[in-house]
């Protein structure tokens, strides 16, 4: 037991004793195992991966391996598939997230008000999120198959398709298959977070608005939306990044085909790395994707900062 007496003359200085040193170290003890594993399994491979992008690194040609400067990036600039995949990534992310948010918001608003059977309704409509991503991909792949699913028939009956055929093999429509699966799978996530956010809106705000004579729509427009927006920016940001980064549905459903028409960047990275075994080029693609996502995040946070003022 330490009973060190501090010189009262230097009251300003922070006393350093064994107990206080231990106390200062305590948070790091709780953090260390988790942070270490994240650093080892995510940060280190990331740095290694970025370094690959500056190398000539094709697994079939080990002799040719070496630093190649910006060669991979130059190649990427003139790669038509890269530009196509980039455009597709934007399309894929935009439509997926847009529909996830709007349908999720609708669902959250439905779930916020009590109605008979709400609890069971909630667990049923949230179910898609429990479905493993690859499985929702397979599931929707089958649903778009006119042989085993009525969906193409229905789509053609309401005039969205000229005949009951598989949109996944149509170069113009293939990307919308995985987008549909992504929306289906992601709506519950947004509904959950939006529901949580809605519940944190102080109810006296609504009461005050009602006293001021606001209609339901006006209250939504002037109270709910301004309240949700800043809270939701981070969620939207993380989800957008996650969707943009996620190759699984496309990999499972179309493999990027037909003829790269549904190729997105992460899936292109995956196929470049494991079909053509060109790790250097794949890493350059991934690095570009990451830089774009970082810019996107900074932009969104900047917008959030402006909104906050």
């Amino acid at each position: 037991m330490s009973t060190t007496v501090n010189d009262p003359g230097r009251t300003g200085a922070s006393p350093r004793t064994s107990r206080q040193r231990l106390t200062a170290a305590e948070p790091y003890l709780y953090l260390a195992p988790g942070i270490a594993i994240v650093a080892l399994v995510m940060l280190v491979p990331l740095v290694v991966g970025v370094s690959f992008s500056f190398q000539n690194y094709v697994i079939f040609r080990p002799a040719a391996r070496g630093w190649s400067g910006l060669e991979n990036y130059a190649e990427l600039w003139s790669d038509r598939t890269f530009w196509l995949a980039l455009a597709n990534t934007a399309k894929w992310t935009f439509w997926s997230v847009l529909f996830q948010i709007s349908l999720g918001l609708g669902l959250a608003l439905i779930l916020e008000k009590p109605f008979p059977g709400r609890a069971i309704f909630q667990s049923l409509v949230f179910l898609p999120w429990a479905v493993p991503t690859f499985l929702s991909g397979l599931n929707w792949q089958w649903l778009f198959n006119p042989i085993v699913s009525p969906l193409p028939g229905m789509l053609s009956a309401i005039g969205m398709l000229d005949e009951p055929r598989n949109i996944l093999s149509d170069p113009d429509l293939a990307l919308y298959g995985p987008i549909t699966a992504m929306i289906w799978w992601g709506v519950p996530f947004f509904a959950i977070t939006l529901l949580a956010a809605l519940r944190s809106v102080p109810s006296d705000l609504y009461e005050a608005a009602a006293i001021d004579g606001a209609t339901g729509w006006e209250a939504f427009r002037h109270i709910t939306v301004p309240f949700l927006l800043p809270m939701m920016t981070i969620t939207i940001l993380l989800r957008t990044v996650w969707v943009a980064n996620s190759p699984e549905l496309i990999f499972v459903m179309t493999g990027g085909g037909p003829a790269n028409t549904s190729q997105t960047l992460p899936n292109y990275v995956f196929t470049s790395a494991y079909s053509s075994m060109n790790f250097g080029y794949a890493s350059a693609l991934a690095s570009v994707l990451m830089v774009l996502l970082v810019f996107y995040s900074i932009f969104l946070l900047w917008i959030r900062g402006r909104l906050g003022q």
Binding site: P27, L31, I35, V38, L40, V41, M42, L43, V44, P45, L46, V48, G49, V50, F52, L238, V241, W242, N245, S246, P247, L265, P266, N267, V269, F270, A273, F279, A282, S283, A286, S287, L289, M290, L293, V294, S297
Partner: peptide, 27 residues
């Protein structure tokens, strides 16, 4: 370093997972 660590954890969410596969395999 608390803020820095929190930011680090958020930033990991931006990492393109597909890029990590090969390096991770080698580790």
């Amino acid at each position: 370093g608390k803020t820095a660590l929190m930011v680090f954890l958020v930033i990991t969410q931006l990492f393109p997972i597909v890029m990590l596969i090969t390096p991770l395999y080698q580790i």
